[in-house]
Computed example of a mutant assay.
Amino acid sequence: MQEVLNMIINTIKNISIWSVLDILVVSYIFFKGYMLIKETRAEQLLKGIALIVALLPISYLLRLDMLYFILSKTITIGVLTIIIIFQPEIRRALEHIGRSAFDDLHVMQDDEALEEVITELVNAVANLAETATGALIAIEQSTGLGEVISNGTELDAKVSSALLENIFVVNTPLHDGATIIRNDRIVAAGCVLPLSSNTSINKKLGTRHRAGIGLSETSDALIIIVSEETGTISLAVNGRLTRNYDKDKLKSILMRIMINRREKRVKTLGEKVKVWITKIKRQK
Rank of each mutant, 00 (worst) to 15 (best):
L145M: 10
I83D: 07
L36I: 15
K281V: 12
G214I: 03
M255L: 15
E263I: 09
D111I: 13
L24R: 00
I49A: 12
I253Q: 04
L62D: 08
S16N: 14
S59L: 06
K47P: 03
P173M: 03
V117W: 04
E95G: 15
K204G: 12
V25I: 15
G177A: 00
V26S: 12
I118W: 02
R99L: 01
T278K: 12
L105V: 10
I137L: 00
H209F: 13
V122N: 03
K284I: 15
R240A: 14
I186R: 06
T199H: 08
E112L: 13
F168G: 03
T218P: 01
I84K: 01
F168R: 03
V273Q: 12
L62T: 13
N202V: 05
D248F: 00
K38D: 14
V25M: 05
I118Y: 06
I75M: 07
S59D: 09
N166M: 12
R282C: 03
L71D: 06
I213A: 01
S219W: 01
A54W: 05
N171P: 03
R182D: 08
A42K: 02
K284G: 14
M258R: 09
S200W: 07
L51Y: 14
E89T: 11
V79Y: 10
H209S: 15
C191G: 07
V159R: 05
I90M: 07
K251L: 15
L46V: 14
E271D: 13
S72N: 11
M1P: 04
R208L: 06
I17E: 13
L71E: 09
H106W: 05
K274A: 15
N183F: 13
G212S: 08
Q44L: 13
V159T: 12
